[in-house]
Deep mutational scan, measured.
Amino acid sequence: NITNLCPFDEVFNATRFASVYAWNRKRISNCVADYSVLYNFAPFFAFKCYGVSPTKLNDLCFTNVYADSFVIRGNEVSQIAPGQTGNIADYNYKLPDDFTGCVIAWNSNKLDSKVGGNYNYLYRLFRKSNLKPFERDISTEIYQAGNKPCNGVAGFNCYFPLRSYGFRPTYGVGHQPYRVVVLSFELLHAPATVCGPKKST
């Protein structure tokens, strides 16, 4: 009989979020998941679920829940969905086509923008091939755009693969920082350890 609540607040209220190319993952297990707390949290810009209804989450049990978190621009949030393409979905964070879970995003301009620009948040701009679902690539190898080998030196046709967002408070909404948490639900042939409040007695 599990009684402790799942530590969703640790994920959602973290002081610093990860850059999207180096997205953070927390495994959540052996706890009671009260999703209504999240669902009623006012400032969400997006709360979209795939393969599961957000209002039914509290009735369900899962083997594991993974909480992935990172920061992207407002106009990139739409790429955090199954079957998407674009710089983020291709080179930074890719969801599987059969994704079961929820994508939760909110504007973090007050936290993550600075006058003069916040350059701490990076994304991958160049990559030889697209990421596989949930693949994480933190390499900083110089990207070779031409035929000539770069030998690890940036220059003509040789690019550092990461780019900084440089968030400023005055940017338009599409270019403002958004914090994103992706909850993915794993249902294995194993005992369920993460259940909603109704199922955990």
Rank of each mutant, 00 (worst) to 15 (best):
C61S: 11
L188T: 15
L95M: 09
F47G: 07
P197H: 15
F156C: 04
D34H: 07
N64T: 15
I138T: 14
T170H: 04
T55G: 14
F8D: 02
F70V: 01
G174D: 10
L162Q: 02
S29W: 08
P197Y: 15
P54I: 15
H189E: 15
V103L: 03
I142C: 04
S108G: 06
G146W: 05
I138N: 11
A190Q: 14
Q79D: 04
T55L: 13
N13I: 05
K114N: 11
A46T: 15
E76I: 03
A145G: 10
I104C: 09
A46I: 13
V52P: 06
G155E: 06
D112E: 03
I104P: 00
A42K: 13
C158P: 02
D112N: 02
T170N: 04
C61W: 07
A105H: 09
N58W: 07
I104K: 02
T140Y: 10
R16A: 11
F167P: 00
K148P: 05
Y123V: 15
Y171I: 00
F156A: 10
V20D: 00
Y165D: 02
V52L: 11
C158Y: 03
C61M: 09
C31M: 06
N151Q: 12
E10S: 11
G172H: 00
T140V: 10
C31E: 07
K199D: 13
P177Y: 03
F41H: 15
N147V: 06
D137Q: 03
S184E: 07
D9M: 15
L38W: 09
W106G: 02
Q79C: 04
T140F: 10
Y121S: 06
F134D: 07
D90G: 09
G172M: 00
N147G: 07
L131M: 08
V103M: 04
I80G: 01
L162C: 04
P191A: 13
G117C: 02
I72M: 06
N24H: 12
V32R: 11
K199G: 14
V103G: 01
Y178A: 07
G166V: 03
K114G: 06
K128G: 11
I138D: 12
Y159S: 00
P177N: 01
D112M: 03
G74D: 00
L60Q: 12
L38D: 02
Y93C: 00
T193R: 12
N120F: 09
C158V: 02
G152W: 06
L125G: 15
R27F: 08
F45K: 15
R168A: 05
S19K: 04
I28E: 01
D97F: 09
A22W: 07
P149F: 10
K199Y: 14
R136C: 07
G116V: 09
P191T: 13
Y93V: 02
L122V: 12
L38E: 02
T55M: 13
H175N: 05
K198R: 13
N157A: 02
A14M: 09
K48L: 05
C150M: 00
L188F: 14
K94P: 01
G86R: 04
H189W: 09
Y39N: 15
I104Y: 13
L183T: 01
A67H: 03
R27W: 08
V103R: 03
E76R: 03
Q144D: 08
C61H: 11
V182W: 01
P149W: 08
V153M: 15
N64V: 11
N30E: 09
D137R: 03
L111W: 13
V182R: 03
D59N: 13
N120M: 12
A14K: 10
T15P: 14
F47S: 09
N147F: 06
L5M: 12
D112P: 01
H189S: 14
D112V: 03
F41S: 12
F44N: 15
Q144K: 08
K56T: 12
I2Y: 13
F45I: 11
I142M: 13
E186I: 07
R127S: 06
G51V: 05
A46D: 11
F160P: 10
N58G: 12
Y159W: 04
K26S: 08
S139W: 05
N87I: 15
W23N: 01
D9A: 14
I80A: 02
D98A: 10
G166N: 06
K128E: 13
C150A: 00
N107D: 04
C49N: 01
G116P: 09
L95T: 04
A192D: 13
C49D: 00
L57M: 10
Y93E: 00
E141S: 11
L57T: 06
Y39L: 14
Y123W: 10
L183R: 01
A22F: 08
F17L: 05
F126G: 03
A42M: 12
L95N: 01
F12W: 05
R163A: 15
I28N: 03
V180G: 01
H189I: 10
P191N: 14
R136E: 04
K94H: 10
F41I: 11
N30Y: 08
R168D: 00
N118M: 06
A33S: 10
C6A: 06
N120T: 07
L183F: 07
N120R: 11
D90A: 09
V32T: 13
D59M: 09
V20T: 04
V173L: 15
A67V: 11
I142L: 10
A154M: 09
T63E: 14
R163M: 15
S139T: 14
R27A: 10
Y93I: 03
F17H: 04
Q79G: 03
P82L: 03
G146D: 05
G174F: 08
V173M: 13
Y121E: 02
Y39R: 15
T193P: 12
T170Y: 04
V182C: 05
V32C: 10
D34A: 06
V11H: 04
K199S: 14
Q176C: 02
V194P: 13
Y121R: 03
V181F: 04
S78N: 12
F167W: 05
Y123K: 15
R163Q: 15
S19D: 07
T100N: 10
K148F: 11
S78R: 12
N130P: 15
R73M: 15
C6G: 05
L5G: 10
I2H: 14
T15W: 05
R179M: 00
G117K: 02
G117P: 02
S29N: 12
V115E: 11
V37M: 14
K94T: 00
Y165H: 04
F167D: 00
F41N: 12
N109T: 03
D9R: 12
D59P: 06
L122Y: 12
Y21C: 05
A105F: 08
L162I: 15
Q144H: 06
Y50N: 01
V52A: 08
L5T: 13
N130K: 15
E141Q: 11
A22R: 11
P149G: 13
Y123M: 15
R163Y: 15
